[in-house]
């Protein structure tokens, strides 16, 4: 049984059906990427998993338990953390307050320890701790968004476009960190427009087009696929 399973998911907004019956799964220890162009339904899929929108059809199961109908804060409580598109940083709060909000549902004593773990991944955040988060650079805000999600001690991490708006060397650094997070035991569902970078670190991937999965396979398989190379890797 997979840790996270999406089965026949149909979801959208108002009259628009952005996701038209997709199935995918994520196992322990995996990085799985969801690639596709703008509007293919990648973000909608993540929003349905974390309860921000309600699926019209289909099921989403986490460790065998259906998440359909749960509110976002309840999905966080079962162990799914979601770093949303645009990062969702609280710009008027300090870096420390942002990080502590990530641990909002936790009552255990390990919060300070996990704070140290986040600083080990992102030493910059320690330097910026008392600073108002809105004054951070784009790269630092992405670090904060990921670090904050880790503060929930999630069993699954959903990342939406972590490379968005970042300089190439920062994209490399962020993706390196994603590999480290997986190595530390948290599987990741990674939505990316930067397919080249995503396929490089992913164990498996799915290609989304207009709300349906048109292709799936290992990261290496997809990176070799002619159609993928033409459409998403900018090769002719």
């Amino acid at each position: 049984m997979a840790l996270l399973e999406v089965e026949g998911l149909v979801a959208g907004y108002g009259a628009i059906t952005a996701v038209k019956g997709i199935s995918l799964h994520l196992d322990e220890g995996e990085i799985v990427t969801l690639i596709g162009s703008n509007g293919a339904g990648k973000t909608t899929t993540l929003r349905a998993i974390s309860g921000l929108i309600r699926p019209r059809q289909g099921d989403i199961r986490f460790a065998g338990r259906s998440l359909v109908g749960l509110k976002p804060h309840e999905v966080v409580a079962v162990g799914v953390a979601h770093v949303p598109e645009g990062r969702g940083i609280f710009g008027t709060l300090t870096v420390k307050e942002n990080l502590l909000l990530g641990a909002h549902r936790r009552r255990d004593a390990g919060i300070l320890e996990d704070l140290e773990r986040v600083f080990a991944l992102f030493p910059r955040l320690r330097e910026r701790l008392g600073q108002v988060a809105g004054t951070l650079s784009g790269g630092e805000q992405q670090m904060l968004a990921i670090g904050r999600a880790l503060m929930a001690k999630p069993r699954v991490l959903l990342l939406d476009e972590p490379s968005m708006g970042l300089a190439p060397f920062l994209v490399d650094a962020i993706f390196q960190t994603i590999v480290e997070i997986r190595a530390a035991g948290t599987p990741i569902l990674l939505v990316e427009q930067n397919a080249a970078a995503a396929l490089e670190i992913a164990d498996r991937g799915y290609v989304l087009e207009s709300g349906t999965i048109v292709l799936s396979g290992t990261g290496a398989e997809l990176a070799r696929n002619d159609g993928v190379r033409r459409a998403y890797l900018g090769e002719l």
Binding site: L52, H73, F90, L93, L100, L101, H104, R105
Partner: peptide, 20 residues
């Protein structure tokens, strides 16, 4: 802190596990 988070960004606050 959760009230300030909700005031700034309700969606992001819910993703922190805050019951909005």
């Amino acid at each position: 802190r959760s009230i300030r988070a909700v005031a700034e960004n309700r969606t992001a606050a819910s993703l922190m596990g805050i019951d909005v």
